[in-house]
């Protein structure tokens, strides 16, 4: 390799780096430039007084409040459902599974992590239809079905972050309680899990972010463009990412499009905040959670 080749390689890497950074800035800049005007209380609450809306005294029309609440409920329910299952599976994988069993379990969780979200959404939808036909005519795609499906989607995140943070504990720490006469369960509950809390937490935050941003799963399982606040978990609901998708194809006026930009900025802020939070809690885990093989 001669000097020219060397220079070309370095020049190429600089061009790539600058291109990528400019693209990201262009995308975010475009959103902010076009949408910053829309960011105000009216965007969220419409004509309703914010306090009335927050206390659920009055319905919000022409505002993002129902969509934001929908996303919030979705996140709480999905992560609430996925967390116990994911934590326990992660603990099993890190502390109990061995040899062949461990390989097989790992393989299935890799598949679960790779299944496209729309396929998980389709499964959720099919489950709803199945229940509708065989159990109760009351069951339609709804908040509960969406949350269940989303919990499948984020399960691998929680499993992996739990597993990786447990496995990365030094042998010294692992042996401490055992050498003092602790049983295996005691070691897990009193030493290992408390010691890997930051990793587990950051996995949970990533799962929250994934629930907040996903569109493909919810569009098949019960999200709608206008529903107001969901009356129960068996009712349809609104959500921020779906609202953005809906506006992009169905907007009827520049004002409506503007709310789409506003919603995008809000969603971006929510996801970036969650991401930074997870990042600060545990840097390394993020990367391993995404790409554990």
């Amino acid at each position: 390799m001669n000097r020219l080749g060397e220079k070309l390689l370095i020049a190429f890497s600089w061009i790539s780096g600058i291109t990528l950074v400019s693209v990201v800035f262009f995308i975010v800049g475009h959103l902010i430039f076009k949408g910053i005007r829309a960011i105000n209380l009216k965007l969220i609450f419409g004509e309703t007084r914010p306090l009335d809306a927050l206390l659920l005294r009055k319905q919000v029309f022409h505002g993002l409040f129902p969509a934001m609440m929908g996303t919030f409920l979705l996140v709480v329910l999905s992560v609430g459902l996925a967390a116990p299952v994911g934590l326990a599976s992660g603990i099993y994988l890190a502390e109990y599974a061995q040899g062949k069993v461990r390989k097989i379990v790992n393989f299935f969780f890799d598949i679960l992590a790779t299944i496209p979200s729309i396929v998980i959404g389709l499964t959720g939808f099919s489950v709803a239809v199945f229940l509708h036909q065989h159990y109760s005519k009351q069951i339609y795609p709804c908040l509960l079905i969406s949350s269940l499906s989303l919990s499948f989607l984020v399960l691998p995140y929680i499993i992996r972050s739990t597993q990786v943070s447990l496995e990365s504990l030094p042998l010294n720490t692992r042996l401490t309680a055992l050498a003092l006469g602790g049983t295996r369960v005691q070691n897990i509950l009193y030493v290992l899990v408390p010691q890997s809390l930051s990793g587990i937490l950051s996995g949970l935050i990533l799962a929250i972010g994934r629930c907040a941003e996903d569109t493909a799963v919810i569009m098949l399982t019960g999200v709608v463009a206008t529903a107001g606040l969901p009356r129960s978990v068996l009712a349809p609901y609104e959500a921020l990412p779906f609202y953005i998708y809906y506006i992009s194809s169905e907007y009827s006026s520049p004002e409506e499009l503007l709310t789409g930009y506003g919603a995008s900025i809000i969603l971006l802020i929510i996801c970036m905040t969650l991401f930074l939070f997870a990042f600060i809690v545990k840097r390394r885990i993020i990367w391993q959670t995404f790409y554990h093989l």
């Binding site: 969603l267 970036m272 969650l274």
Partner: peptide, 17 residues
């Protein structure tokens, strides 16, 4: 940070930009 940007936002900006 990019891994945290919602997909729907890429789509949205794609449509209009």
């Amino acid at each position: 940070l990019m891994t945290g940007i919602p997909t729907v936002i890429y789509g949205f900006v794609g449509v209009f930009l």
